[in-house]
Design a protein around this nucleic acid. Structure first.
Length: 203
DNA sequence: TGGACGATCCCCT
DNA sequence: GGGGATCGTCCAT
């Protein structure tokens, strides 16, 4: 499988959000690959009242305005990080929030990343065979599992240890759309995309 | 300089 | 299904 080319990310944001479903998000951490299949996304567009970029370019949302194919990681609720894929050309403040992934590789390490602080009675090797759903079924949870933090903000997905692989994937039950989660502005937009019936989709 | 709020999660009922 | 945790960001004084 090959990395998605820059051109993939330069396309319209809704298109990218839909097409990211099934692709493999790869994070090289301590020399090991942590891989998850993207199963849920949300699009944030220009002139979108729910978007961080709605009121223009600031220190916080600066990466959203960079060229498509960069990673925008932001801190929220005083304790959580969320990861987005930046879309379109430089100067356009649009991105796709990665809301959920299905763990594929490096599950033991993901478990450690996410649950290290808590004592877990389950043996890691056993848990790797049957990882708990709450390992990666939410935007902040997957950031914990993949160790995506402030330092990863602005990473180029075409040149580094975080990237997305093209992957043939044909969801048997198809793709669903819905309103976006946890927002109050522009809530009527059906800009959330998910793999129907997938266990790792949030809520 | 301060206050309101948030693209969430977890635990409790 | 509801509330608390917790703090960076932004905008209004």
């Amino acid at each position: 499988m090959k990395k998605l080319p820059r051109s993939f990310y330069l396309r319209p944001t809704l298109q990218v959000a839909r097409d990211l479903l099934g692709k493999h998000l790869v994070r090289v951490y301590k020399g090991k690959k942590l891989i998850g299949r993207i199963v849920e996304t949300e699009a944030y567009c220009e002139n979108d009242a729910a978007s961080h970029a709605f009121r223009g370019r600031t220190n916080r949302n600066d990466v959203m305005f960079s060229k498509g194919g960069h990673l925008y990681v932001y801190f929220t609720y005083g304790m959580h990080f969320c990861a987005n894929v930046v879309t379109r050309e430089e100067g356009t403040g649009e991105a796709v929030l990665i809301r959920a992934i299905e763990p594929l590789e490096g599950i033991g390490l993901m478990m450690r990343n996410r649950f290290q602080s808590q004592a877990r009675p389950t043996a890691t090797s056993l848990a790797a065979l049957h990882p708990p759903t709450n390992l990666t079924n939410g935007p902040a949870k997957l950031c914990q599992a993949l160790r995506l933090h402030r330092e990863q903000n602005g990473t180029d997905l075409l040149d580094g240890e975080i990237y997305i692989l093209d992957a043939p994937y044909f969801p048997t039950a198809g793709v669903g759309t819905s309103r976006r989660t946890g927002i109050v502005k522009a809530k009527e937009k059906k800009w959330r995309f998910f793999v129907k019936g997938n266990r790792w989709v949030s809520r």
